[in-house]
Design a protein around this nucleic acid. Sequence first.
DNA 1: CCAAAAGTGTTCACTTTACACCCATGA
DNA 2: TCATGGGTGTAAAGTGAACACTTTTGG
Lengths: 234, 234
Amino acid sequence: MTEQYKNHDHILVALDCIIFGFDRSGLKLLLIKRDFEPEKGNWSLMGGFLNRDESLDDAANRILHKLTGLKNVYLEQLYGFGEVDRDPVERTISIAYYALINIRSHDKELMDKYDARWFPIDDLPDLIFDHGEMVKAAKSRLKYRASHEPVGFELLPEKFTMPELQILYEGIYETELDKRNFRRRILSMDILTKTNEKQKKYSKKGAFLYKFNEDKYEEKVDQGDSLTFKPIKL
Amino acid sequence: MTEQYKNHDHILVALDCIIFGFDRSGLKLLLIKRDFEPEKGNWSLMGGFLNRDESLDDAANRILHKLTGLKNVYLEQLYGFGEVDRDPVERTISIAYYALINIRSHDKELMDKYDARWFPIDDLPDLIFDHGEMVKAAKSRLKYRASHEPVGFELLPEKFTMPELQILYEGIYETELDKRNFRRRILSMDILTKTNEKQKKYSKKGAFLYKFNEDKYEEKVDQGDSLTFKPIKL
DNA sequence: CCAAAAGTGTTCACTTTACACCCATGA
DNA sequence: TCATGGGTGTAAAGTGAACACTTTTGG
């Protein structure tokens, strides 16, 4: 009977979001300064609790929106963290999600409200609880995902240059890439559209801007082409 | 303050185990017949609820042990399933785990107690709730894991033949493999020990038995060798 | 002696890697 | 005019895929 459901513990379910961003200086993580005890004043992932009437995905989206003002963002469930003492206040499990956002697109006011800051991925402060572990898992998942699907473009503006794309992949894979091999490989996938515009912000010669062509990509997937975005050794 | 923790919903956290086994006829899944309403009499994954004083991993191990009598088994967290209406009785999220066990090693009495049965992976009955989705995710994760780490051996007895190993990988990848290419590839990894024994159960000539050499494997991992167990197309 | 499964090498195509110089332009 | 970042091709090595016959032995 439904007896089977009685007498079982009901537990707080948290969600924590690892939010990735990117600019030319590299991959970044959006962290907030926790404003309540315990660990008040320390850096933390953006989190919240699951409500009875929402799905895990909905809750993660709600929490991400609360900090960034963004909706319809790339968001993927990562892992359930469930050590008994992971939260000193109360038994809580946390389902971690990671998000990829365009670092220019989010709400600046909310940044202030939550005391949020972008940190370079390789220079993070100590994080509360098991959030450091979550970040580690997210980096590893992002490496995997980026080598199988074109998720990198989620981190870029609509138009971007080849050097920018390369810096992004170098950040994700934590390795340097040969630019000729990188360009050849990316272009041979035939999922980018080259525009006639040049970006002259970062060089005198200027670099051509490209757009990700989602339709072309979907077409290829439908045809069963397996595109890989594997790292290329320096 | 810890006010932040009050007034949040406390929710039932379930765990469900996708249990893989293998014999020469292919990959198998261990399912139980549900003996309470709703969905009484229908096939289901082995599951249970998280207790306040145990970690997610501990709970999954406990549940796996309850059905199989086994401990120290390969068990990996898969995904958190959290649709609002996934369980019609009460709001429940479920963290799915998958296990790889030696199909000969588990407790037969418990099989009867739980009305459990092994099903061929490609001929499963309808499953309750979202368990079908869980199985799909587990198959996909197993493919991935098996192409990066030597998890296949978890499903085999200590000694096994090359043809058996090949049938196993064919089951995991859901594809047929060329036996010359398969053997070459596996043997070139240099992580198997050939015994002098032959298994004559399945052929007149007999097939040599091999053992997985865990020490050698660890050595290679430490040396940074990246071994891949990728599928080989027919 | 034969049926049935185990075992064995080579070739070709393709992919990956390594590597160095010219171009365009603003200061 | 020169410093800076953008852009380009080729050859060599390595990897993946295709493919067919011989061996062993119990019945």
